[in-house]
Write a protein that binds this DNA or RNA. Structure first.
Lengths: 254, 254
DNA sequence: CGTCGTGTTGAACAAGGTCAACGATTGTGG
DNA sequence: CCACAATCGTTGACCTTGTTCAACACGACG
């Protein structure tokens, strides 16, 4: 069974067959389909369920009073959309899809049970939350101290690594159907400027980005331009084990 | 007993006398003193203890290859410095003091115990982590979509609110001994520009900031300039109860 | 009384934003 | 299968914000 949630968490810890079966059951029991540009959960909303993204691409975002949008994080298969909702009254931001997507719905009570166990699963859930914090901090570093080229390079490289981790690709190409406006909203730039920087990347033959596919033709240069250091993703087991997917991730983060 | 950790968490949930006693015991058992500009925990380090800031002012930061520093968060009394360390191998950033500070040290095993209970304490710890995520997201909003004045206004107002929550002040003045360089590193600006913006704030009689004390003379205008919306702090109980400190926080976030 | 960290100021400069127009794609209904 | 609309990508000229860099002022502190 293809379970990106398990694949992601297994970058942190190994599961037993029983644990894997249990997690498979959880994500199978109640699923929900979304179209593109639909809210998985709206700003200010509450829900009795947490959502795990299974397929597609989503993002966390906020809309400012003047209508501008800031994308604070991209979500790839295996990511938890709203871990906070089982403890907080309301969302302080929205999660929306960028492409048609599927989520698994996990009831708050089940989340609480999972978290309170002294098990690899609860530790992996904590690890996921801590990794989310790390990704946000890295984005702050981007926005505060890196120029537009470095920012875009970092973001694109990070997406490639995370797609590898989720098992969505094993090559240097990913399905990345975002508009330049989306990239602008994520990097704090204007669409025009994203366009100009992407063109430079293409001229320099670092990437191809067309018809919704991103191909990184020169990963080493993209990584170094973006000053990418994978420490903040805490992919602890990636170097140690010999899974095909992980050793391939290892190529990227080595 | 003055326990800012409890004060902070009680913005989320009420504790029983026993729980309060227990938390008091935890922060009393093992403390550590720091001078100004000292690392509580270094980038890449591991520790068997989590630190709760009890007095002073600290920050999370990263140093870039070119020596530039980005401050990703300020920590006030009651904040957990390194919740991740009991689950992750190494820090992906550093936590350092800005002023002489005191921390309480909590052993990893005790943190795990606290987190696994079905108790108000474990829920409050989760709440604290979720609030940290919210603060980071708000910082991303700042850096990505607000100009320098809005950013600084937002940051200063947030600090005032958080000092109120921690019980460190009940007025519109806070002890805020940061340099303009610190503010620049936190807001992604240059020190010169921070200086110019602060001068404008002073001319407009919104704030006074001298000899290490910040006084907000026009909270309403600072709040509106920074587009401050307190939802992301999840101060759920602030409106509902009648504690002096909380009703005063209520003035700020209403 | 000198020194060091910090705050302040100015002028030249660059990165990126703004705005408006135009091209290219994609998707849709007839 | 084509015509059309809508969305997205591309381009250029101009402009604003904030940076750079250097000089100087101020105050705390030995």
């Amino acid at each position: 069974m293809n379970n990106p949630w398990v694949m992601k968490m297994e970058q942190f810890t190994a599961f037993t067959k029983e644990e894997r079966t249990r997690l498979d059951a959880i994500i199978t029991s109640k699923q929900r389909e979304f179209q593109a540009q639909e809210d998985v959960i709206a700003d200010g909303a509450h829900s009795d369920y947490c959502h795990v993204l299974l397929t597609g691409l989503a993002c966390r975002y906020k809309i400012l009073p003047d209508g501008e949008r800031q994308i604070m994080a991209f979500l790839v298969p295996g990511d938890l959309c709203d871990a906070e909702i089982f403890i907080l009254k309301r969302m302080d931001h929205a999660v929306g899809t960028l492409t048609p997507s599927t989520t698994a719905m996990i009831h708050s009570s089940e989340m609480k049970t999972l978290l309170r166990e002294a098990s690899p699963i609860s530790e992996a859930l904590w690890w996921g939350t801590m990794t989310d914090l790390g990704v946000l901090r890295e984005r702050i570093l981007d926005l505060g101290r890196r120029d537009s080229s470095e920012r875009l390079a970092h973001l694109l490289y990070e997406m490639l690594v995370r797609y590898r981790v989720s098992g969505a690709t094993k090559t240097n190409s990913i399905d990345f159907p975002v508009t330049q406006t989306d990239l602008a909203d994520a990097t704090g730039m204007t669409p025009s400027h994203v366009n100009r920087v992407l063109q430079r990347f293409r001229e320099d033959e670092m990437i191809e980005l067309r018809s919704k596919t991103l191909t990184v033709t020169d990963p080493a240069r993209l990584k170094s331009l973006g000053q990418f250091n994978p420490a903040y993703l805490h992919l602890d087991r990636t170097e140690a084990n010999d899974l095909a997917v992980s050793s391939r991730v290892g190529d990227l983060i080595g």
